Simulated scan of single mutants.
Amino acid sequence: MDRKRVLVVGGTGYLGQHLLQGFLEMEGKPYDVAFTHHSSPPQKLLDAVSPCPAFPVDLQTGQGFDTISATFGQVCSRTM
């Protein structure tokens, strides 16, 4: 069975950071986790959530979602 994937939209925000932390602290790490950001995430955050991939996305234009689909979402795309 494939692992579930979780994309936290707005991972550099207050709620997003706490969601990332919660997912990464789960016992057994049952999920692959990635997050989106609009501006460059602080290095401290990147260090804390490593090796979580971070994707730059503009929510107004949708620019960046294709990259997520092509890399992080490969399994999800094939099952639909």
Rank of each mutant, 00 (worst) to 15 (best):
F65H: 04
T61Q: 07
S69T: 08
F55N: 12
P56I: 02
G73S: 08
S50L: 00
T61L: 12
S69R: 10
A54E: 10
F55A: 09
F65I: 13
T61M: 05
T71A: 02
C52T: 15
C76I: 02
F72P: 12
S69M: 13
P53Q: 02
P51D: 01
D47E: 15
G62D: 09
A70Y: 01
V75F: 04
T79N: 07
P51E: 00
Q74L: 13
K44D: 15
C52M: 12
G64T: 06
Q43A: 15
A70P: 01
T61Y: 01
F55P: 14
V75D: 06
D66S: 14
Q74C: 03
F72H: 10
T71M: 03
Q63H: 11
S77D: 10
A54H: 08
V75H: 03
L59P: 06
Q74K: 14
Q43T: 13
A48P: 15
K44W: 02
C76L: 04
V49W: 01
F72S: 05
D58C: 13
S50Q: 07
P56F: 01
A70F: 02
Q43R: 09
P56T: 00
Q60F: 07
A48K: 15
K44T: 15
K44N: 09
D47K: 13
L59A: 05
I68L: 08
Q63D: 14
D58G: 11
T79E: 12
L59H: 09
V57S: 08
G62S: 10
L59K: 03
T71R: 07
T79K: 08
C76M: 09
A70Q: 14
F55M: 04
V75E: 12
L46R: 14
P51K: 00
C76Y: 04
A54D: 09
K44A: 15
G62N: 11
S50F: 06
V49Y: 02
A48I: 11
Q63A: 14
V57F: 06
L45S: 07
I68A: 10
R78I: 05
G62K: 08
Q74A: 12
D58F: 05
C76S: 09
S77V: 13
P56E: 03
C52R: 02
G73M: 02
C52W: 04
D66R: 11
G62P: 15
L46A: 07
Q43E: 15
R78Y: 04
T79P: 00
D66E: 15
I68R: 05
G64K: 02
L46H: 04
P56K: 04
Q63T: 14
K44E: 15
T67M: 03
T67I: 07
Q60K: 13
G73Q: 12
P53K: 01
V49K: 02
P56Q: 07
T71P: 00
Q60M: 11
T67V: 12
Q74H: 01
V75N: 06
D66Y: 05
Q60R: 13
D58V: 11
D58Q: 10
A70L: 01
P51F: 00
F55S: 09
G64E: 08
